[in-house]
């Protein structure tokens, strides 16, 4: 499904002219199989979010190759990346990243609007998905009128609405209490089973990592298979 080969990346830091290059990803190589949940764990600053950003096409790596379903995405330009994301990826963010001026329904509808789907089809798809994730009763609420768990459900629904084969989740439960965290993790697992969606979850939480089929650990820019404790 996703193959990452020999990915290297470094950031420039310091004043202009006196910049230093700090490596954040070092020869990262791994694969994600179709329909599996993979979690990448690591401490803050270990490079796990950078890895997700590069895999999602938000930025380019210094070197290395990424393939999604055999398509080399690492050579895409910005517009090609945007199109590929719209068709193949869904995103779940730690702080939900909902549009404050749109209702829950409209937030979920947004990717379909970007794809140019007509209104009738949009209405049907969003309605059905809202029902599936249990948001029908709050569909006309604005994000600031929803609880954290509800907002993350809206965010998950928005990620699912285009039926993407892959969903990237960046600390999906980071802003939630433990009870809501369990709800969201169960939802992710059920969606993975029911729809065969591949999940790549970035987390520093072992609890979240345990829901994954495979766990990778990122430490100082180097990736290794196994949980944090295993790695240690």
């Amino acid at each position: 499904m996703i193959s990452v080969e020999d990915l290297n990346h470094s950031f420039k830091i310091g004043k202009k002219g006196k910049e230093k290059r700090v490596p954040v990803l070092k020869r990262v190589t791994f694969n994600v199989q179709d329909g599996e949940i993979v979690s990448i764990v690591g401490k803050s600053g270990s490079g796990k979010s950078t890895l997700l950003h590069i895999m999602a096409g938000f930025m380019h790596a210094d070197s290395g190759v990424i393939r999604v379903n055999g398509v080399e995405t690492s050579s895409f330009n910005e517009a090609e990346n945007a199109k590929f994301r719209l068709d193949n990826f869904g995103f779940i963010f730690q702080n939900f990243q909902l549009m404050p001026g749109l209702t829950a329904f409209e937030n979920v509808e947004l990717p379909l609007k970007l794809k140019g789907v007509n209104q009738t089809e949009r209405q049907q798809k969003v309605q059905s998905l809202m029902q599936h994730v249990g948001l029908t009763n709050v569909q006309d609420h604005y994000p600031n009128e929803l609880s954290g768990g509800q907002q993350q459900r809206v965010s998950i629904a928005r990620a699912l609405i285009t039926d993407p084969p892959v969903i990237f989740a960046d600390e999906p439960t980071g802003s939630l209490d433990s009870e809501t965290e369990q709800d969201v993790l169960l939802l992710i697992q059920s969606l993975n089973k029911a729809r065969n969606i591949t999940f790549v979850i970035i987390t520093h939480d072992d609890e979240v990592a345990r829901t994954a089929d495979r766990v990778y650990t990122m430490r100082d820019g180097e990736l290794s298979e196994g949980g944090m404790h295993d790695a240690v």
């Binding site: 938000f58 517009a79 199109k83 994301r85 719209l86 909902l98 970007l114």
Partner: peptide
């Protein structure tokens, strides 16, 4: 800015 970022993240074309 944040809204534009979200739109770009979920796949909005820069031309759009």
């Amino acid at each position: 800015t944040r809204e534009i970022g979200v739109m770009k993240a979920i796949g909005a074309d820069p031309k759009l």
